[in-house]
């Protein structure tokens, strides 16, 4: 198995405050790795550093065997952020947002080819939003918007999917649709690295769990069993108070 992502002695600091300290992680092709940890443990920072969105204070990162600084083959990676970007001043349809995910493989200044368009259509269908593709993303629910972001990443046909809290505050229909799309991606040989607060319906797909605590890896191996009231089968782990669940004062974002 070849290494898709390798972090060696990675350290990240925000304004002098260390967030990740001497972190070592290797993700191999075909793995489905969940990064778990409490809020503020540095788990989101870990994937942001892997993507080059946050600079390393020390250490090194390799993507597909190439040093991150020299890595140019970004179409091999599909990134799913926590939420839709800030550029929502003008309406955009589901299809327009998902089509942006095709730009990496399409190439700069290249006109779209027929397979670019069909890849976008397929990606939208794979998350169950085919009937909404001409609707503005702002008219969708939070869970549906999350599915749009996953479709955007899938449209580029990546080999590695990196997701930041894909299921946080997402309704169960969307969680099921998402788990289905992920299963299909893994079945076709894809590698997944996802940050999660809870695994929910994703649990059966995960092959390995990495727990980040206080900027270092505290556990690396099988998925830990939920403890305490989290273990109760009737426990419905929702966070309706989480900030991204609340509509802004101007309504939904």
């Amino acid at each position: 198995m070849t290494s898709v992502l390798r972090i060696e002695h990675g350290a990240v600091a925000y304004g002098g405050r260390p967030v990740l300290r001497d972190l070592n992680l290797t993700v191999s092709s075909g793995e489905v790795v969940a990064i778990l940890g409490a809020n503020g443990s540095g788990k989101s920072t870990l994937i942001r550093a892997a993507l080059g969105l946050v600079p390393l204070a020390s250490g090194r990162i390799e993507l597909f065997g190439v040093a991150q600084k020299r890595f140019r083959d970004w179409k091999r990676i599909g990134y799913v952020p926590q939420r839709l970007g800030a550029g929502s001043g003008v309406p955009a349809t589901v299809r327009e947002v998902v089509a942006a995910g095709r730009l990496a493989s399409r190439g700069f200044l290249r006109p779209p080819r027929r397979n670019d368009s069909s890849a976008v259509t397929e990606a939208i269908a794979s998350v169950g939003l085919a009937d909404r593709s001409r609707d503005p993303v702002s008219s969708l629910s939070g869970g549906q918007q999350q599915r749009v972001l996953i479709a955007r990443a899938l449209a580029g046909a990546p080999e590695l999917l990196i997701l930041d809290e894909p299921t946080a505050g997402v309704d169960s229909t969307s969680q099921e649709a998402f788990a289905g799309a992920l299963r299909k991606f893994v079945h076709n040989g894809g590698t997944v690295l996802l940050v999660a607060h809870e695994l929910g319906p994703l649990q059966p797909v995960i092959t390995r769990a990495v727990v980040v605590h206080d900027g270092v890896i505290a556990h690396d191996g099988p998925v830990p069993r939920p403890a305490g009231h989290h273990a109760d089968p009737a426990h419905d782990h929702v966070h309706p108070h989480a900030p991204h669940d609340e509509p802004g004062i101007w309504g939904t974002r």
Partner: peptide, 16 residues
């Protein structure tokens, strides 16, 4: 559109 809609995503897509 991509850089104005989601600049971080555009960076991760390798766009200039």
């Amino acid at each position: 559109f991509a850089i104005c809609q989601d600049e971080e995503y555009a960076r991760v897509s390798g766009l200039p």
